[in-house]
C-alpha cells in the first residue's frame, strides 16, 4: 500500500543542513497496524506528516497504492484525503466553532454527500463511539479523551483505508489511552483499516502488528 524509498528531510539551520530524516525506506502493506517509536526529536512526527502528505520530503519517492504522490496537485491531494486517508492529531484539532456532530460531518460535506447520507453516517459513528449524548456540545465542553474520540470518529467518517495518528493518546490518561487503543485494534482487525501510529508507550505499541524504531532520523529496527 505504501512504499517510501530514499526519503530525506532536512532543515537549513545556520547555513548547515540539519537532517531530520535520513534515507528512509519503508514498505507498509494493506491491513497492517504499525507503531512508530523513538526518542523525542528523532523524526517520528515528520515521517508521519510525510506519510499523511501534510509535509514533503526534500528527496525521495512515495508510492501510495502504486502511485507517486509527492508533488501532487492540490486538487488530487484533497481527493486522497477525501477518499483514502484519515488523520488523528495528538492535540485533537477539532474545529472549535462546530459541535461534535458538525465536526464529524465536515469531511462528508467536502465529499459532497447528500444531507441524508451524512446524517446516517454521523449517527452511526456517534452511536458506535458512545457519544450520542454529546453530539450537540462544542469541543471546549468535552474532556480530552472525549475530544480524541470525536477526532477519531471524524477521521473515520469517510471510511479511509489508511488511518494516521500522531501520539493519539499523548494527552490522555492511561485508561482513556487503553480505550483508544482497543478501538484502533478493533478497526484494524474488523474493518481492515491500515493504521500507522506514533507512540511513546511500549504498551500502546504492543497493540500493533509491527514496530518501526527511529533514531536520529534513521530506521534502526
Amino acid at each position: 500500500m505504501i512504499q517510501l524509498s530514499n526519503i530525506f528531510k532536512w532543515y537549513n539551520v545556520g547555513g548547515n543542513r540539519s537532517f531530520v530524516l535520513k534515507d528512509i525506506n519503508l514498505t507498509i502493506n494493506e491491513g497492517e497496524f504499525v507503531s512508530i517509536m523513538g526518542p523525542s526529536g528523532s523524526g517520528k512526527s515528520t515521517l508521519l506528516h510525510i506519510l499523511g502528505l501534510l509535509d514533503e520530503p526534500n528527496e525521495g519517492s512515495y508510492l501510495f497504492q502504486e502511485q507517486e504522490v509527492l508533488h501532487l496537485k492540490e486538487k488530487q491531494r484533497s481527493t486522497l484525503y477525501k477518499e483514502h486517508i484519515g488523520f488523528v492529531f495528538q492535540a485533537y484539532h477539532l474545529i472549535d466553532e462546530l459541535t461534535v456532530y458538525e465536526n464529524i460531518e465536515t469531511p462528508l460535506i467536502y465529499k459532497n454527500l447528500k444531507g441524508s447520507e451524512r446524517k446516517a453516517i454521523v449517527a452511526d459513528l456517534i452511536d458506535r463511539f458512545g457519544i450520542v449524548g454529546k453530539k450537540d456540545l462544542f469541543p471546549a465542553q468535552l474532556s480530552g479523551g472525549q475530544q480524541q474520540l470525536v477526532g477519531i470518529a471524524r477521521a473515520l467518517a469517510t471510511t479511509p483505508k489508511l488511518l494516521l495518528a500522531d501520539e493519539p493518546t499523548g494527552n490522555l490518561n492511561s485508561k482513556q489511552g487503553e480505550e483508544i487503543m482497543e478501538l484502533f485494534k478493533q478497526l484494524n482487525q474488523e474493518d481492515g483499516v491500515t493504521i500507522i501510529q506514533v507512540t511513546h508507550s511500549e504498551k500502546n505499541a504492543e497493540y500493533g502488528s509491527r514496530i518501526i524504531e527511529l533514531l536520529d532520523g534513521q530506521v534502526v529496527k
Binding site: L54, S78, T79, H93, L94, D96, Y110
Partner: peptide
C-alpha cells in the same frame, strides 16, 4: 489551525 484541519479533511483551497 482550522484551515489546516479542513485541508486534511479534504477541503480544497477553492472551498
Amino acid at each position: 489551525k482550522e484551515i489546516g484541519v479542513r485541508k486534511v479533511m479534504g477541503s480544497s483551497r477553492k472551498q
